[in-house]
Design a protein around this nucleic acid. Structure first.
Lengths: 254, 254
DNA sequence: GCAAAAGTGTTGTGAGTACACCCATGT
DNA sequence: ACATGGGTGTACTCACAACACTTTTGC
């Protein structure tokens, strides 16, 4: 498609950037590529690239993500735009920031590999990115926007489960909440909120409904690679979630 | 700036669109212009226009807003992007949607007048826009995005007061909440949540704090143009708000 | 006095919190 | 047995809902 394109008014270049968050069981990490070319050659950057004429912004983000990192089939959400005048030294560029979530199974599945302009890919701790200066362009700002958007939705939507494998322990779920909301929770109360309070069993309110019985369902499986009491594995029970949402807004807030 | 601009790769045109919400005391309305030119000549559209090379997206939105409608000094917030391939029949255009809030004093201050490419301006009821098909381009979608973003922030931030004059009645405040969240509230409980529960007076909790005493302060003034008991006027008490936010998250939710 | 709307009081429910306690497993 | 962490019980507080009641004004 390289050639010469003529317009009566100046136009900025338009790119998308993707902030892919992953949870490895302990920390939130972000998928980055090492830049192969100037500017910022050798520095870490978000996957992303230029919008083509026959695709939407979201399609562009998905395409670039696949081309550079091999990540496919993700649900992208828009976090905002970056439009500083000199954010790219080459030319005027505005960028639309998307983000998505991967669980550890997918992070380390082997499908995610550096390709195309990406020299190599790496998973870097979110904290490190937010406190340091390791990213090219204004990509730190992009990560901030994506993270803020994510955290803001946590109490309203079941986004935390997108960071967890299909089967997970409550400890892991709590860890995700604590990382995203930057606070700690009482272990016992967190458990009850998610699984359901056993004291509610049998108790029936005047209108015939039971108390909140939680949104997690025990799989029966048990985590075996531990030195102590193994945790049970749970799954997110979409059906229960939908029931609770219909009756009254369930919220994930504390 | 008209001339000839050459690029090695094709570039989309970039515009901003502004959804300006106003509350007239009864309904939420949106500021629109009547299009002077094709495409969609004569149809209603959001104010907005093309990004220039030496301005950010937000600056562009502010400039276009001022040029077309006379609206200045507003706090813009970003609602999302529109990037459908054929959303503008002339050329590929992507648009970034911003929104802001005006109170009725400003809506009808006389400063807001059609200028530049805008043939005329009008305030149209939000409901009418969301249910009908009166808007040019995909601007209905833009209004939806802006409204969803606004409503989502209502419970967390004191945005409702941006739709109200400096001095307002509790009834008006409740009306805003009901319109934005599309539900009704108990009048008595709403009053107490905002002004503070009088039964809390004197009561002190064990740690020395009083109960929530509300975020509104009575101005002493009274609404006189009524046939019945007049409402008191209140103001949003930023200081109380900040105090409550420091101690524990105050939320505007019900 | 009556209508209409502002504002107060009172009670119950249930979610959230704090924290003590019990249970299961590997070494 | 004991260390470690999973899981339960219980009592208290407070925000919210429901709704009855009182107050203030114009006609």
């Amino acid at each position: 498609m390289e050639g010469s394109y003529n317009y009566r008014f100046p136009r900025p270049a338009v790119t998308t950037d993707c902030v892919i968050f992953g949870f490895d069981g302990n920390k939130i990490k972000v998928l980055l590529i090492t830049r192969e070319n100037e500017p910022f050659k050798g520095k870490l950057a978000l996957p992303g690239g230029f919008l083509e004429m026959e695709e939407t912004l979201e399609a562009c983000a998905l395409r670039e993500l696949k081309e550079e990192t091999g990540v496919t089939e993700v649900r992208l959400r828009e976090a905002g735009t970056l439009s500083g005048i000199d954010r790219d030294p080459r030319t005027r560029v505005i960028s639309i920031v998307f983000y998505s979530l991967l669980n550890s199974d997918r992070m380390y599945s082997g499908d995610i590999i550096a390709q195309s302009d990406a020299k190599e890919i790496s998973w870097v701790e979110l904290d490190e990115l937010l406190s340091g200066d390791r990213l090219a362009f204004d990509h730190k700002k992009a990560v901030q926007m994506a993270f803020a958007n994510l955290a803001g939705r946590l109490n309203k939507e079941p986004v935390a489960f997108e960071l967890l494998n299909d089967v997970f322990t409550i400890k892991e779920l709590q860890r995700v909440y604590e990382l995203l909301l930057n606070r700690s929770f009482d272990r016992a109360n967190f458990h009850k909120k998610m699984v359901g309070d056993p004291t509610a069993k049998g108790k029936v309110k005047k209108n015939g409904r039971k108390k909140n019985t939680g949104i997690l369902t025990d799989t029966g499986e048990v985590m075996k690679d531990t030195k102590h009491k193994p945790a049970k594995y749970y799954i997110f029970d979409l059906q229960k979630y939908n029931e609770l949402m219909e009756k009254e807004d369930f919220n994930f807030g504390f």
